[in-house]
């Protein structure tokens, strides 16, 4: 009975999370565009699925993703093998990014931009090669980012110096990179981190920082995602400079 009640409560709070979107979409549809809502049935069914889905996701987060991330962080810390931990960090970043659908879409679009700008020849093979190269570049950069972020947690380096130097590098490279790639490079930082990677990587960082003596989980545990959103910008601009 209590678990049913908990589930019901969780669904209510998921519904509350969705309320803003429902209000915004209905307001613009009915008041601004002055059109009726099409297909009521599908919308209601969709909303019901979104609410149930979000509730399940949050349940699973606390049962599966958070515990496994933290337990692995603890195991690596007590095993004391830094090399394996770094390999794991790289694999996690690389493996989750290479398969990311949002990245595949952006890479394909970027290839078209490059062809339109006359940077590569607009034939099918060239486009695909360019898009794949870009995907590989971003995945590599996220792998390196998570690895670098883990090294930072181990060493206890302050994050802001690393991020600010990264920004500096981004700005310097903006000057030299082909203008058509700059917009894609800036956007690629945001699309890399998926809904399943974020909780896992966060739990890993927090778990590591809490099992290493002298580290504060708040100061040292967060920040992995920040690295994963910064390095793709640098690598994608680098890729653009190399290819042209």
């Amino acid at each position: 009975m209590t678990s049913i009640l908990a589930m019901f409560k969780a669904m209510l709070s998921s519904l509350r999370d969705l309320l803003p979107i429902i209000i915004v979409i209905s307001f613009f549809q009915l008041v601004v565009l002055q059109q009726p809502l099409p297909d009521w049935g599908a919308i209601l069914l969709g909303l019901l699925l979104v609410v149930i889905g979000l509730t399940f996701f949050i349940f699973g987060l606390e049962m599966g993703l958070f515990p496994i991330g933290e337990s692995m962080a603890r195991s690596f810390a007590s095993k004391g093998s830094v090399v394996w931990l770094l390999i794991f960090a790289f694999c996690l970043g690389f493996g989750t990014t290479i398969a990311e659908p949002a990245l595949t879409a952006v890479a394909a679009e970027a290839a078209e931009v490059a062809a339109e700008g006359g940077l590569i020849s607009p034939d099918e093979e060239m486009l695909e090669q360019y898009a794949n190269g870009l995907r590989l570049t971003v995945a590599l950069s996220v792998g390196i980012a998570i690895m670098l972020g883990v090294i930072r947690i181990l060493k206890g380096w302050p994050i802001h110096w690393m991020i600010i130097s990264g920004y500096l590098l981004v700005m310097i490279m903006t000057w030299f990179a082909p203008p058509s790639i700059v917009g894609i490079a800036y956007d690629s930082g945001g699309v890399t981190t998926s809904t399943i990677t974020v909780p896992l990587v966060t739990a890993l960082g927090v778990g590591l920082a809490s099992s290493i003596k002298g580290r504060n989980p708040m100061v040292d545990g967060f920040g992995l995602i920040a690295f994963a959103s910064l390095t793709p910008m640098i690598f994608v601009m680098g890729y653009g400079m190399l290819v042209h």
Binding site: I43, L45, G46, L47, G53, I58, G60, L65, T195
Partner: peptide
């Protein structure tokens, strides 16, 4: 067993969530 079930919940939840978004929003 709990962790595996958690993963199942995450995958199932995310699928329903995405499908609902595609239907409604």
């Amino acid at each position: 067993d709990k962790v595996v079930l958690g993963f199942v919940y995450v995958v199932l939840g995310l699928s329903l969530f995405l499908m609902g978004l595609e239907l409604a929003l």
